[in-house]
Design a protein around this nucleic acid. Structure first.
Lengths: 139, 139
DNA sequence: ATACCAGTTGGAGCGCGCTCCAAGTCAAAC
DNA sequence: GTTTGACTTGGAGCGCGCTCCAACTGGTAT
């Protein structure tokens, strides 16, 4: 599979794919007779996994490190395991934080809802939601 | 409260606070006799809420819009309510996604674990985890 | 043979969200 | 009244993660 087809399969632009190879985010693809990249199914699977890491906020530097370990062979599995465990915990922590944020948003939504219902006192909003609580109007 | 104290309270640099005011992410603070910003408790509460939105990926542009609505007074509460509801759903969706990712990571962790245990076949790793599955070694 | 187009390279540019800087102002401390 | 230092402004610069570009090459189609 050449870069155009691979780009279609992954949804990443050819430029981005070349960039990823340049910085070591994907193992260097083999080249055909004409020097063009030749991607295989293994690359496709790696890109999918990379997307998991990327979309959960892993930094490029850390992913590079993972790729480097991967290239060093099976004896680096314990290191990769440790990285994945660390990342898994980060993801779990972030998920817990999102849950907290949802309760904050829900509280605010309930407050606004009560205001639009007309079932709240006018200054129920002064708690971080309207600007003209104190002093002059601030434009 | 002047910008230095406010910076300490919020954990944001004075530069960032001025930048936020410039782009309309915080309502313009009042000025004292010498033209210096004077922040109050309402600003503090706003910064906390802003942090909630920011840390859950709301774009500056959208937060600006929210601030603008806020400055327009209580009649914009329905609009703000709609924005918060939309954002709340985004956060919930993201949280669901993180949960999925955790199961992917857990699967991979379990696989690696079984390899380090020695309880797996050598080619259990060829599924997106080692690079030398096909062809030549790719460096 | 010629045209075409997908690919190659290195490097410049971009959007975001800050972060830093230079030049100037003002209130308080000495 | 001079120094200090926290502040003001507008604007430049930066790190990240792409994204685009110019100049070139190599296989395929006519």
């Amino acid at each position: 599979m050449r870069i155009g087809a691979f780009s279609r399969r992954t949804g990443l632009s050819a430029d981005t794919l070349r960039y990823y190879e340049r910085i070591g985010l994907v193992p260097r693809a083999g080249r055909d007779a004409g020097g063009r990249r030749d991607y295989g199914e293994d690359h496709l699977r790696w890109m999918e996994f990379l997307d998991v890491l990327k979309s959960t906020g892993m930094r490029i530097e850390e992913m590079r490190r993972y790729v480097a370990l991967r290239a060093d062979g099976p004896e680096t599995v314990p290191d990769r395991l440790a990285m994945l465990r660390t990342h898994r915990e980060r993801v779990a922590a972030e998920r817990a934080r999102l849950l907290e944020v949802e309760t904050v948003l829900d509280a605010k939504i309930a407050l606004f809802q009560s205001v639009t219902d007309g079932s709240a006192s006018p200054n129920a909003l002064t708690c971080a939601s309207t600007t003209s609580g104190h002093k002059e109007s601030r434009t």
